[in-house]
Simulated scan of single mutants.
Amino acid sequence: MTALVTGASSGLGAEFARQLAARGHDLVLVARSRDRLDALAAGLRERHGVRVDVFAHDLAERGAPERVVADLATIGIAVDLLVNNAGFGTAGRFEQIPAGRDTDQVMVNVVSVVGLTRLLVPAMLARGGGGGVINVGSTAGFQPSPYFAAYAAAKAFVLNFSLALREEYRGRDLRVLALCPGPTRTAFFDVVGSGPRSAPG
């Protein structure tokens, strides 16, 4: 079984990779940082004896999901489990967030999730082999969050998208799960520019 993990260079994505490799899954790791992906992949291969392929892509760019899937086709890999983990947040007054930053956030947190799911799920269904999708949301997706407006809205999308697909694929041998962690000590808060204690709720 092969799992594709986005945002795999650190944090929850790297932990997904470690846990899946420990269970014997081959991996495809996707993130912007090629060096960190290569280092993680080398360690997983050595420790668990699994195949690990690495693709460096920025999921904020238009067409990134298509490029990831084209890379998969080039090396002849079929994905059985998609982990849409890549994401980042912005914090502050909406009008003061740098121009384009929230657009990039929506591209990573929403557009790439839909794009990769749309591109990979049909083949999972066609194989009939019990495929799955894990979408990493957030407890922020359960309510509007002032000063995290775009982030909370994006995670609300991830939650509802996942719940809807779960119903669509019920009984069709494809599982869909939304993981909604609360504030977690990862590099997320380095990007946001605040600490876990600043998160609402």
Rank of each mutant, 00 (worst) to 15 (best):
I77G: 11
E61F: 00
A91S: 14
G92A: 10
A199C: 14
L179Y: 12
D71P: 00
P65W: 05
F94Q: 01
I97Q: 01
E167M: 13
V113N: 04
Q19N: 02
G11V: 12
L12R: 06
A8S: 14
I77C: 15
A150I: 10
G129C: 03
G129L: 06
A149M: 09
G129H: 05
S194P: 04
G100Y: 04
R175T: 13
G128T: 04
N84L: 04
L72G: 02
V50T: 07
L177D: 09
A91W: 10
A99C: 08
L177F: 13
R101E: 01
S10E: 12
R18V: 10
V114Y: 14
V68F: 13
L163G: 14
V114W: 11
M107I: 06
L82K: 11
T2R: 13
A150F: 06
V30T: 13
L27N: 05
A60D: 03
D58C: 03
P181Y: 10
F188V: 11
L40G: 06
D190H: 09
F94T: 10
A154Y: 10
G129T: 05
D58Q: 08
A153K: 07
F189M: 08
R185A: 15
R101K: 04
A140C: 02
G182Q: 13
G130W: 06
H57L: 00
G128Q: 07
T74L: 04
D26L: 14
N135E: 09
L179T: 12
G137V: 07
S112R: 08
A39T: 12
R51I: 01
T90Q: 04
A140W: 01
L119E: 06
T139L: 13
R127D: 08
V79P: 03
A149P: 01
D35N: 12
A199R: 09
A150D: 03
L179I: 13
S162T: 14
G76Q: 08
T184F: 10
A14N: 04
T2N: 11
V111K: 09
D102F: 02
G137S: 13
E168L: 13
Q19R: 12
A78L: 07
P65I: 02
R185K: 14
